[in-house]
Simulated scan of single mutants.
Amino acid sequence: MITIIDYGMGNLRSVQKGFEKVGYTAQVTDDPRVVEKAERLVLPGVGAFRDCMDNLRDGGFIEPIHQFIATGRPFLGICLGFQVLLGESEEFGSHQGLGIFPGKVTRFAEDMQLDGETLKVPHMGWNRIQHRDIPLFKGVAQDSFVYFVHSYYVQPEDSTVVAATTDYGIEFCSAICRDNVMATQFHPEKSQQVGLTMLKNFGEL
C-alpha cells in the first residue's frame, strides 16, 4: 500500500491514478496516524512553500513525516513536496522547511537567457533530465523528458544527494536521493510513460 498525504494542497488524485495505472493500490489520507503506519509514503504538492509548511504543521504531519523517514521506509516527495524537504525557502520571505536536507529554495532569475532569448518564469512544460543510477530511475534513459511547473529550485548543501539535473538557463537540481528518501521537482504523474516507470520503481522498493 502506498500512502499519499493530503494536507490541502496538490493534485492528489493524479498521483493516486498514476500509481493505480502501474498496478499499485494508493490511499489518500489526512490522518497523521495513518502516515505513521504507512508502508511507502508520498508527499505531493502545488502552491506556496509557506502555506505548505503551515498546512503540514496544522495537520499534525511534521513529526510523523520525520519519524517515517527515520525508519528507512521509502519516501517520495513531488514538486512542492520536494522543496519543503530542504531547510529553508526564500519564497515570499524566509521560511523554514522540514530540514531533511540542508540547503535552500531559490527563485529563478527573471533575466535567464537561452540562445539569446529570455526564459519565462515559471519554468513550465517539458524538459530533459540527466540522472545518476538510483532505483527510482531504473529503466529511465538519460535525457528523458519530464514535466515541470515551478518558479523556485532547490540548492542542497551536499552535492552528493543530487540525483538528477536539468538545464533552464542554469543547471539546477531536479531530483534528490539519500537512502530511503527520494524527491523530484518534476511531476512523474504528468510525465507519461517515463513518469509511470518512476512510480512503478517506487512501488517496487
Results as ranks from 00 to 15, higher is better:
Arg132Gln: 11
Leu136Ser: 05
Pro135Glu: 01
Ser159Gly: 08
Tyr147Gly: 02
Glu157Thr: 13
Ala109Asp: 15
Arg132Leu: 06
Cys177Lys: 08
Ala164Glu: 04
Ser174Arg: 12
Leu119Gly: 07
Thr118Leu: 07
Asn127His: 05
Glu110Met: 13
Phe108Lys: 07
Ile134Val: 15
Met112Asn: 14
Ala109Phe: 10
Arg178Asp: 10
Ala163Asn: 05
Asp133Gln: 12
Arg128Ile: 13
Val161Asp: 01
Ala109Ser: 15
Trp126Val: 11
Phe137Asn: 06
Pro135Met: 02
Ser144Asp: 08
Gly169Ile: 05
Cys173Ala: 15
Asp158His: 09
Val105Ile: 12
Ile129Tyr: 09
Gly169Arg: 10
Gln155Gly: 02
Val146Ile: 14
Gly125Ile: 02
Tyr147Pro: 08
Tyr168Glu: 01
Glu117Arg: 14
Pro122Glu: 00
Met112Tyr: 15
Leu114His: 13
Thr118Met: 05
Val149Glu: 01
Thr118Glu: 07
Lys120Phe: 01
Ile170Tyr: 09
Arg178Lys: 15
Tyr147Cys: 02
Gly116Phe: 11
Thr118Asp: 02
Gln142Met: 03
Cys177Thr: 03
Thr160Cys: 05
Val105Lys: 11
Val121Trp: 04
Ile176Pro: 08
Tyr153Pro: 06
Val105Trp: 08
Phe145Asp: 08
Val154Asn: 06
Val149Trp: 03
Gly169Leu: 07
Pro156Cys: 09
Leu119Met: 03
Asp133Pro: 04
Val146Ala: 06
Gln155Thr: 12
Glu110Pro: 03
Arg107His: 13
Gly116Ser: 13
Leu119Lys: 03
Phe148His: 11
Gly116Cys: 08
His131Val: 01
Thr118His: 01
Cys173Val: 15
Asp111Cys: 02
Arg128Pro: 06
Val140Phe: 02
Lys138Gln: 09
Trp126Cys: 11
Glu117Ile: 08
His131Gln: 13
Tyr152Cys: 12
Glu157Ala: 07
Phe108Leu: 14
Leu136Ala: 04
Ile134Thr: 13
Met112Cys: 11
Leu136Lys: 07
Ile176Thr: 07
Val121Arg: 01
Leu114Cys: 10
Gln113Thr: 14
Ala141Gly: 04
Gln155Lys: 12
Gly116Lys: 10
Tyr147Ser: 02
Ser151Asn: 07
Asn127Leu: 04
Asp115Lys: 10
Asp143Gln: 15
Gln155Ile: 13
Val121Pro: 04
Met112Asp: 09
Thr106Met: 13
Thr106Ile: 15
Leu119Ser: 02
Thr160Gly: 08
